[in-house]
Amino acid sequence: MPIVQIEEVIKIYEGKVTHRALDRLSFEVEDGEFLAVMGPSGSGKTTLLNLISGIDRPTSGHIRVAGTDPSTLKPDEAARFRRQELGFIFQDFNLLRMLTVEENIVLPLTLEGMPIKEMDARMRAVAKRLGLADILHKRPDEISGGQEQRTAIARALVHRPSLVLADEPTGNLDSHAAREVLDLMATINRENGTTVVMVTHDPIAASYCDRVLFIKDGAYYNEIHRDDRRRTFFQRILNMLSLLGGNVDDLSSVRLP
């Protein structure tokens, strides 16, 4: 039973220049799968995440996520849907700076009005799992980037969502922290059966997944499945990227803090 179904989805942005961000895209994500979506800059990856999470609506086509079509929901229902069914991991972590690690993790639960004991227990369990138990009372400014992203992962998992959406989760991390985060995501996917859809530029990150979906100019391009050995999987991803062309391994633009 697929948890995400994308059928013939078209997304057109009207403006001074009409832009077709997604062009008759179709694919499915199985329950418990770890999927990477790759494609050059501007290929529609972020648009795809926004459609799945119900922040944006498709121009045509159908989307089903965990049995609901997010595009049919009213704004409040969409918000409730996101906080019950989805978890988000962002490139720049997006932790709330004024909250401690503990408070950041527990945030999605507070919206549901869960009993304090239960919230506390869940938060502690997930924090222990992600190695955050010692820094629960620190604020984001006081911890490293890797710790920040692990906190964000904890926040994305604590309410046990059906689907975790990750947007370039390793984009702002050094290679060591990136590997740590990816290992964690793979482990959680394997052991808890959490479905993860990850959008990425990074072939190393993609090589941790079960399947890599390539899109180009908003349309389906190809997909490859993981085999036994990660090294050969990584090589096949690289080959596919060179076929795909474009600036896949672009660094994301240098930012000033």
Binding site: S53, I55, P75, D76, A79, R80, F81, R82, R83, Q84, L86, F88, F90, N94, L96, L107, P108, L111, R155
Partner: peptide, 16 residues
Amino acid sequence: RRQAAVLKRLGFTDRE
């Protein structure tokens, strides 16, 4: 604004 965008994704309703 950035914070508001994050909160929206985390599932805060407009009223909240």
